[in-house]
Write a protein that binds this DNA or RNA. Structure first.
Lengths: 135, 135
DNA sequence: CGGATCGTCAACCATCCGGTTGAATATCGA
DNA sequence: TCGATATTCAACCGGATGGTTGACGATCCG
């Protein structure tokens, strides 16, 4: 709904602030998934996951398309990139420079290392119970 | 305090999810500031700003050092970089669609190539009241 | 048709969050 | 010492969040 139309970064960062939702994004990195399949590894109700997905969709981090009776969830990385670029501004103590960003993408993406921790890919989430925390 | 020791990314993203706090970070990009000076451009109580700063400090986005009776706030970009790295894992997911990305940016950083600095520094914030919101 | 599956909705609950105000603490400076 | 300045603390409030359960509307399939 988003009746108040807040700053897009508000909703993006708020969506990213929840470990369950970040884990969902990691899962969707692999492939598009149905809601039920997204919910499967988590120890929480389907309704809760459905809400999380709604939050992600509201932040435009994912899109959802209903085909038949199953609703497919798809990662939508543009919003993430926007947030990422916002942060890059701090990393380099410089106003955002799209060209520099593009250069960055081209150079840094090829060493396709595992960028994120994969702590959250860990086959069985139980987001509350501190398994997936290392630092 | 942070009694529950949650994932660092939780607190970082949660801290970034508030426009007042992002504005504060932008201000600290310029220079270290005392709490009172941080509060000055905002139309909210000093106590509220003090709380915001505590949130930022808890997320390690800033550090605070008390010299005399004034507490200096200093930007600490390492945490931001960590979050940034996390997000880049998603960036490489796709061939980068810079056009779509740029469109998204425009909804966020309205005018000019000057991404932040002054859009949110605009002499008087009233973060709730829709001045700096355009979408 | 009728039953199983997919997903959301509605109500409810506990907790967190962002803000307020007023009092308290600490330090500076005359 | 006394008053002004800097900052936090404590209590409170309304609204958002994250979770639950149970009922419900669709859709598939035998």
């Amino acid at each position: 709904m988003t009746t108040a139309t807040p700053d897009p970064l508000d909703t993006v960062f708020a969506a990213l602030a929840d470990p369950t939702r970040r884990a969902i994004l990691n899962m969707l990195l692999e492939d598009d998934m149905a809601v039920t399949d997204v919910a499967e590894p988590f120890s929480m109700s389907l309704a809760a996951i459905s809400k999380h997905l709604a939050v992600l969709a509201d932040a435009r981090l994912i899109t959802q398309e209903k085909r038949g009776r199953v609703k497919w969830c798809k990662l939508e990385p543009d919003a993430l990139r926007a947030a990422s670029v916002w942060m890059q501004g701090f990393g380099q103590f410089d106003p955002v420079d799209l060209d520099a960003f593009e250069r960055f993408l081209e150079t840094e993406f090829d060493h396709s290392g595992e960028a994120f921790s994969d702590t959250e890919n860990a086959a069985e989430f139980d987001t509350n119970s501190a398994d997936n925390r290392l630092d």
